[in-house]
């Protein structure tokens, strides 16, 4: 779903399935996504986390007509992102009547070594 949008395609983001059947997004490293030399741009990593949250929320809602609006999002950058592929997995923490809470983690070669995390609030229409 998210991976078909123009912005996800611009960044080279695709769907990815873990060995346990859970899904997430993968970002293919390219020079167009570079920030300081040798590292992925922080805004690109943030975008991956945000899109992963949107994807997880829309799967959970399972209603294409219902598009929650981002209220805010907080990112922590834990390590520099090297110029290699980047994986993200998000979790819907709570769906309330009005507000959805989601969070996401992003890593590269080792899922136990996250490079960034994000938390998001969304408003349900």
């Amino acid at each position: 779903m998210i991976s078909a949008t123009p912005y996800a395609q611009l960044l080279g983001i695709g769907d990815w399935m873990d060995s346990d059947g859970s899904t997430g997004l993968v970002l293919r490293a390219s020079s167009q996504l570079e920030g300081r030399e040798g590292f992925l741009y922080g805004g690109v990593i943030a975008s991956l986390l945000e899109l992963a949250c949107l994807e997880a929320v829309s799967r959970e809602l399972d209603d294409p007509g219902r598009r929650p609006k981002p209220i805010n999002m907080t990112y922590d950058f834990l390590r520099g992102g090297r110029m290699v592929d980047c994986y993200a997995k998000a979790r819907v923490v709570r769906i309330g009547k009005r507000v959805v809470n989601a969070d996401a983690t992003c890593w590269q070669s080792d899922a136990q070594v996250p490079i960034a995390t994000g938390r998001m609030h969304l408003l349900l229409a």
């Binding site: 912005y7 805004g43 943030a46 899109l51």
Partner: peptide, 11 residues
């Protein structure tokens, strides 16, 4: 998308 917004803020 709000992605470009975040990237522009970072810059």
């Amino acid at each position: 998308s709000s992605g470009p917004v975040v990237s522009l803020i970072d810059a």
